[in-house]
């Protein structure tokens, strides 16, 4: 849904045109979710509890509402309406979207999710922190690495040894 806009010809004065199409994507997602809810719960059986409302009533309600809202949203976007991107101190609202940054953060996080059980918390979390800090623009790598290791070891000790929360030990099983 996040393909960059190619229709550079359409320019309105107040809006940045490149947003139009991606926002339409979100609006269509809302619409699509409405359909998904209705279709997805169509097969739910309501054999038990014959009284009152079965398990399909509420999804039907939510799904229909979502379709209605989705249609309005799509129309709104097509007619030129657009939401204001959230303002934040750390965000340069005028900057063009940096898909490389988003992609990098995504890859690092998903790798972390996939490798956590194998590597264990200490290693995986340190790599997560280190990778994210670099992806988000940290310049001093050694410092980032040091902070990463300290943070991951400290959290492991505090929550696993201190509180008995279960986190995977992974590679360091038996060492820590």
């Amino acid at each position: 849904m996040s393909t960059p806009d190619e229709r550079d010809g359409v320019v309105t004065r107040d809006a940045v045109p490149a947003w139009r199409r991606p926002e339409l994507g979100l609006a269509l997602t809302v619409l699509g979710l409405g359909v998904f809810v209705i279709v997805g719960t169509a097969g739910v059986t309501a054999a038990a509890s014959t009284l009152g409302l079965g398990p399909r009533f509420f999804p039907l309600l939510v799904g229909s509402a979502m379709i209605l809202i989705g249609v309005c949203y799509v129309l709104d976007v097509l007619r030129g309406g657009h939401g204001d991107p959230e303002e934040s101190e750390d965000v340069d609202a005028a900057a063009p979207a940096d898909w490389r940054g988003v992609g990098l953060v995504s890859v690092i996080f998903l790798l972390f999710a996939g490798l956590l059980d194998l590597l264990g918390w200490v290693v995986a979390a340190a790599l997560l922190f280190f990778g994210l800090a670099l992806a988000l623009g940290a310049r001093e790598r050694l410092r980032a690495a040091a902070v990463a290791v300290v943070l991951s070891v400290a959290t492991y000790l505090a929550f696993v040894k201190g509180l008995g929360v279960t986190l995977p030990a992974g590679l360091l099983d038996g060492v820590i």
């Binding site: 972390f112 918390w121 922190f129």
Partner: peptide, 26 residues
Amino acid sequence: RPYLYAGIVLFAALGVYALNNSWVDL
């Protein structure tokens, strides 16, 4: 900022994983 956001994500991941010990949640 890079450290702040990396730290936020680290704590978010820790808390969410500890809920069910499941990577699916991540």
